[in-house]
Design a protein around this nucleic acid. Structure first.
Length: 570
RNA sequence: CGGGGUGUGGCGCAGCGGGAGCGCGCCUGUUUUGGGAACAGGAGGUCGUCGGUUCAAUCCCGACCACCCCGACCA
């Protein structure tokens, strides 16, 4: 490719509306251009990269025996009603009407269409198992798109679905997929970790996310510093120490605590550790007031809370609501008789004794309070020992007791064992060897193609620009002709371009009449893996200068050997 | 959905009740040539939209829209 013909201009300055570096660099290097919030045009260089990423994905998907197909974006809304996901996606679902006033949706994902397609094509266990996948544009009306290609409203995603007649087949597809994902991210130059994930409202049992570590990421994960455990903080579990303190059965006693309304103040006022205090958090859950009780050094994990109680709408309760239920904010606790309130207790509270809790009376707390005797969980059918606490940095790993570390990252892949939730709703059944009709067991597996590009740039850049991993770079080589107005430079650069191109390299040849500084800076900004310099000075020495974008120094290679040298690096 | 910010040429920005400007980029010419060259000349803008105030609005007032950030939310 001749730089003089390349569509897409580089910019000297960072565009105003870009905050994260990958986004700014992609705009500056002329890779993408925003059309509206969360929607981008991919210019030729970005498109080259995305196609290379897609072909890596295809290779790895095909290697594990998946078949590619292509499903529509435009889908009838009723299909989404049949699984209840129209409501679940809610505002995030783009909907439109056709000329006959039929409501259609722009698909945010494809479980529904594919499962109904499969339902019509699978009758017997002999038809199973198999994996289907596609790379498709998806639409989600995100409330807050951000970070360029990191969170878009229109984006490319690879989605794969496995269909099995028994759980061994599902497990095996899941394992194959994990292996394929690791290969894909590896080849794309990404450093990722696989962690346990929350499987959400219609999820199955197992679910893992692939996270590209990055401090601009929107996901937080807890990783064990010693063993292999890692989980999204949404579901991360950790050791909750049992207090060794006194285990006497002292009776509750009021303590005067004037103006002490929060855990930190109470802890220092009474000179007891926060884990000896109980925190009562009030929520409005699907219209009902609930109080979550946990030790003072923990925060409520709202995802765990939602999952445990199967809550759809969850919000912090207002002070007025708390008061009207007979509690005093700041001095509230579940101790006492509270008919209309559901009490939910974190498992850390079950074993320990002699907590300090609010007295439901202004300026007073109670000490020597214990679960079971002085208050208990009410009504709801949760098992004792529900874990409702949010992991924090330094908590201990349940598996090896080492410290957990909290990291941020970008979710670039997600795998789920869906089970039979979709096949039951969409009537995708098969007849087993025993003659019994049963639902197909499913898994689903997504990868954000644009997110791979963004995350990869996020992990691979320096102050001068992008440092493209070699397998996903838009071109392999930047060939700079310095002062190509000089005939010998132009001839030399032209012929090197021909030689490299014919030996299989994808070369971006900077043939522009521009000063050397401009060319060096653009080459750094675009960040192709290898840079070659042809100049009068180098011609005199009979060499071509070769520099890897990731290295700081260049090497001089003789003209005759440079093509081999470069193609060996590819 | 709450809070904050910004809308002026392709990009980055300044400005101001009465001539729409600067830097970068772009075009032409001359000189230059290894890390964003110099000089000269030139093209390019309904100042986000609508309404109001005023003799006069890019500027003041109001509404709306768009975009960005923080939070909430998010298989």
């Amino acid at each position: 490719m001749l730089f003089s013909k390349l569509f897409g201009k580089t910019l000297k300055e960072k565009p105003t509306d870009t905050e994260v570096s990958s986004h700014a660099l992609m705009e500056r290097a002329g890779l993408i251009s925003q059309v509206v919030s969360g929607v981008y045009s991919y210019l030729p260089m970005a498109w080259n990269s995305l196609l290379r990423i897609e072909s890596i994905i295809r290779e790895e998907m095909n290697t594990i025996g998946s078949q590619e197909l292509h499903l529509p974006v435009l889908q009838p809304a009723e299909l989404w009603d049949s699984t209840g996901r129209k409501d679940l996606f809610g505002q995030n679902l783009f909907t439109l009407e056709d000329r006959r006033n039929r409501t259609l949706v722009l698909a945010p994902t494809h479980e529904e269409v594919l499962t109904s397609l499969v339902a019509a094509n699978v009758q017997s266990y002999k038809d199973l198992p198999f994996i289907l996948y596609q790379i498709q544009t998806k639409f989600r009306d995100e409330e807050r798109p951000r970070g360029g290609l990191l969170r878009c409203r229109e984006f490319h995603m690879k989605d794969a679905y496995s269909f099995a007649s028994n759980s061994d087949q599902l497990d095996s597809a899941y394992e194959d997929m994990i292996q394929a994902y690791n290969n894909i991210f590896d080849r794309c130059g990404l450093s990722t970790v696989m962690v346990e994930a929350d499987s959400g409202a219609i999820g199955g049992k197992d679910s893992h996310e692939f996270i590209a570590l990055s401090n601009i990421g929107e996901d937080s994960i807890a990783i064990c510093t010693s063993c292999k455990y890692g989980a999204n903080v949404e579901r991360a579990e950790f050791v909750k120490p049992v207090n060794s303190g006194n285990s006497s059965n002292a009776t509750p006693e009021e303590v005067h605590t004037p103006g002490i309304t929060d855990i930190n103040a109470l802890s220092s006022f009474l000179n007891v550790s926060k884990s000896d205090l109980l925190k009562s958090m009030f929520y409005l859950a699907d219209g009902k007031l609930i109080v979550v009780v946990l030790e003072g050094d923990y925060e409520v994990n709202e995802i765990k809370l939602r999952n445990t109680l199967n809550i759809k709408d969850l919000a912090i309760a207002s002070d007025s609501l708390i008061r009207s239920a007979g509690f005093i904010p700041g001095f509230a606790s579940p101790v006492g008789d509270h008919k209309d309130v559901t009490v939910v207790v974190d498992d850390s509270v079950i074993e320990n004794k002699n907590y300090v809790v609010g007295a439901n009376k202004v300026d007073y707390h109670l000490k020597n309070v214990q679960y079971g005797r002085d208050f208990k969980k009410t009504t709801v059918s949760i098992e004792i020992g529900s874990d409702l606490a949010l992991v924090k940095d330094g908590d201990l790993c349940l598996h090896c007791n080492s410290k957990l570390k909290i990291e941020k990252g970008i979710e670039i892949g997600h795998v789920f064992k869906l089970g039979t939730a979709y096949s039951e709703k969409l009537n995708a059944y098969f007849v087993g060897a025993d003659g019994v009709r049963q639902p197909i067991i499913m898994g689903c597996y997504g990868i954000g193609v644009g997110r791979i590009l963004s995350a990869s740039i996020e992990q691979n850049h320096d102050p001068n620009g992008i440092i493209f991993p070699k397998l996903i770079a838009p071109y392999d080589v930047s060939l700079l002709g310095l002062n190509v107005e000089q005939e010998d430079v132009k001839n030399e650069a032209d012929s090197l371009y021909e030689l490299l191109t014919s030996s299989g390299a994808n070369v971006l040849y900077d043939d522009r009449i521009e000063s050397p500084g401009v060319k060096f800076n653009d080459a750094d900004l675009i960040g192709l893996p290898i840079r070659l310099v042809v100049s009068a000075r180098n011609i005199d020495q009979g060499v071509i200068e070769v520099k890897k974008r990731s290295d700081s120094d260049a090497v001089k290679i003789s003209k005759d050997e440079v093509v081999k040298y470069v193609t060996d690096l590819l």
